[in-house]
Design a protein around this nucleic acid. Structure first.
Length: 552
RNA sequence: UGCCCGAUAGUGUAAUGGAAGCACAUGUGACUUUGACUCAUAGGGUCCAGGUUCGAACCCUGGUCGGGCAACCA
């Protein structure tokens, strides 16, 4: 946490100045998700900023659901969002709010604007509405009804509220300037009619406030001092300020920052929903998704996601961070914390010819090579083993770490062994290695001090646990699937983003609890999936180890 | 061709008128009972042109390039 408190950015500079000048005496922020989808790592940046800023200044951060559009929103998301924020490590305490709790206040505020002659009911169709608004380069025209009397507007607005109109028959607009160079100031609509059941207010309302009207009022009611949002709302800020000024209420400051983007993925809720709906991934929590629930299932730790958000900082520059940066944060954290184990993902058989058939031994291996305090585990050894197919090579170069005919290799934590014979099938595929071991090298070191550079992992065939392992890779094959505006981003989906295999695990892994993370030595980081059963675990590959230099 | 915003190594981000740093990535080497980790080391940057100043990444002017804005979405 102390590291996070040290972070600073242009927003904190603003806050420092506000505190120093006395403009503000406290800091209140808010994270305002719309419950219409799952949170992704882009949201994590906002969450870290909102909650982290409050923490830094001993202020408060509200969790507020921005539930102003019942058609898009669903209770399902409400729970998931709260779970994800908690998982990330943030706590809103008592400060859980709902935009829908302010619907009465918002209605009153709208009436107040009508009474000031600053809002009017407009019956233009959507087509006409657009037409009257004009274009960026052309001013709009004042719509008919713009100069209706206050009494008539009051009456019409009440009729809207009471269900006296069909959906879309009219809207309430704010009266600003149809010729403004800022399109958002050309009398934007602030209330629309929607006959929809709201997850919170039920059928009480058939009119719902729109974002521009609702959001600033929500912030104001809650006493938010600094309201952070993403760059696309920059042009909305004059409207945000206008509404609160006209209402003469507490005025929070909206500050915009750039979204987090990562290479080899997409960060739009709409596009992620598309992947889910078209079953191109297995749901929102598919470990390939950049959603927090997906990343959690993949095995990414909350700390590493927070670390990433810390490192990428916060600016107004639109950017795409390399996913390698995230991966580095994840590996750093996993290397530190995950226990080691041995698993063979692409097995070939090794028979130790001079090892007694009936003999079994148990070796003690450290759970973490740099952390003795993590203890040891016992791993059984016997005459037949599984090793990685990639750990044998005909005519291997000197630097190759693995078996080749006649070369002595260390079986990690067990013995030194030499391969004497290779058995291949008709296709020339290796099916078995015949080896001999040196009984004097128990534990893996030779009494005569001879150096053996290669160390490989293994699993006793007799004791191995067969299990499903899901090897995940990047979801897309290109850095920015959205770069080509002509193409469908789904065309760039990586066909090899999920590979199902059966691996051989050391027996101690059999009862791994879902969510437990391991490093399978020399293979990668893995996390027990929720699909694990009593009989056999299922593992997700979080990441490979850092890519080694190629030795061919 | 309107309005708004932005531009620092490949990427992300510091330096707030006073020596352009850091991280990731990349190259090389060392260590290693994980080709991991760790350690050492190298290369590489202020969009352009003017101006202000003893001094500019920073301030000013003009360009260039990139992004956003025309849902009854948020």
């Amino acid at each position: 946490m102390s590291e996070e408190l040290k972070t600073t950015n242009f927003i904190h500079d603003i806050i420092d100045a506000d505190l120093a000048s006395g403009k503000r005496t406290e800091v209140v922020t808010r994270f305002p998700p719309e419950p219409n989808g799952y949170l992704h790592i882009g949201h994590a940046k906002a969450i870290c900023l909102d909650f982290g800023t409050a923490e830094k200044y001993n202020g408060k951060c509200h969790l507020r659901f921005d539930d102003t559009n019942p058609e898009a929103e669903d209770e399902e998301y409400v729970q998931a969002i709260q779970e994800d924020i908690k998982w990330l490590g943030f706590n809103w305490g008592e400060n859980l709010f709902w935009a829908s709790n302010y619907f009465d206040a918002m209605y009153e505020y709208a009436v107040r604007l009508i009474n000031k002659g600053k809002a009017y009911v407009c019956e233009l169709t959507q087509e006409e509405f657009k037409d009257y608004r004009g274009a960026p380069t052309e001013p709009g025209k004042e719509p008919p009804g713009r100069d209706r009397s206050i009494e008539e507007n009051l009456e019409l607005f009440e009729k809207m509220k009471n269900g006296g109109f069909k959906d879309g028959a009219c809207v309430l607009r704010v009266k600003i300037d149809m010729t403004s160079p800022n399109l958002h100031l050309r009398d934007p609509a602030i209330y629309r009619i929607k006959t929809a059941t709201h997850h919170n207010t039920g059928d009480k309302w058939c009119i719902y406030p729109m974002y521009d009207f609702a959001h600033c009022i929500e912030d104001s009611i809650e006493g938010v001092t600094h309201s952070m949002c993403t760059l696309e709302f920059e042009v909305h800020r004059p409207l945000y300020d206008w509404i609160l000024r006209e209402l003469d209420v507490f005025q929070p400051q909206q500050i915009e920052f750039s979204r987090l983007n990562l290479t080899y993925t997409v960060m739009s809720k709409r596009k992620l929903l598309e992947l889910v709906n078209e079953k191109l991934v297995n749901g929102w929590d598919d470990p390939r998704m950049p959603t927090l629930c997906g990343m959690r299932r993949r095995g990414f730790s909350a700390e590493s996601i927070r670390k990433l958000c810390d490192i990428v900082g916060c600016t107004k520059v639109e950017s795409i961070s390399e996913v390698e940066l995230l991966e580095s944060c994840v590996r750093d954290n996993l290397n530190e914390n995950s226990l080691r184990a041995m698993a063979v993902v692409d097995p070939i058989k090794v028979v130790i010819e001079n090892y007694p058939d009936e003999l079994e031994e148990e070796f003690e291996l450290p759970n973490h090579p740099q952390k003795e305090e993590k203890g040891k585990r016992t791993v059984p050894f016997s005459r037949e083993l599984w090793i990685e197919r990639t750990d044998y090579k005909d005519d291997a170069p000197n630097k190759f770490k693995g078996f080749t005919l006649g070369r002595e290799v260390r079986l990690r934590g067990a013995y030194l062994a030499t391969c004497n014979e290779v058995i291949k099938d008709a296709d020339g595929e290796v099916t078995e290695l015949r080896c001999t071991y040196d009984p004097e090298t128990k534990g893996g070191s030779a009494p005569d001090g001879r150096k053996v550079k290669s160390t490989i992992h293994w699993v006793s065939a007799k004791h191995a646990v067969d299990t499903e392992v899901r090897l995940y890779d990047r979801l897309f094959t290109v850095e920015n699937p959205l770069a080509d505006k002509e193409a469908d981003f789904k065309d760039f989906l990586n066909p090899e983003s999920l590979q199902l295999i059966t691996a051989k695990l050391e027996p101690g892994l059999a009862k791994a609890k879902p969510g437990t993370r391991f490093q399978f030595e020399r293979v990668g980081y893995f996390c027990a999936d929720k699909d694990s059963t009593e009989e056999a675990p299922v593992f997700n590959r979080t990441l490979t180890l850092r890519a080694p230099k190629k030795v061919m």
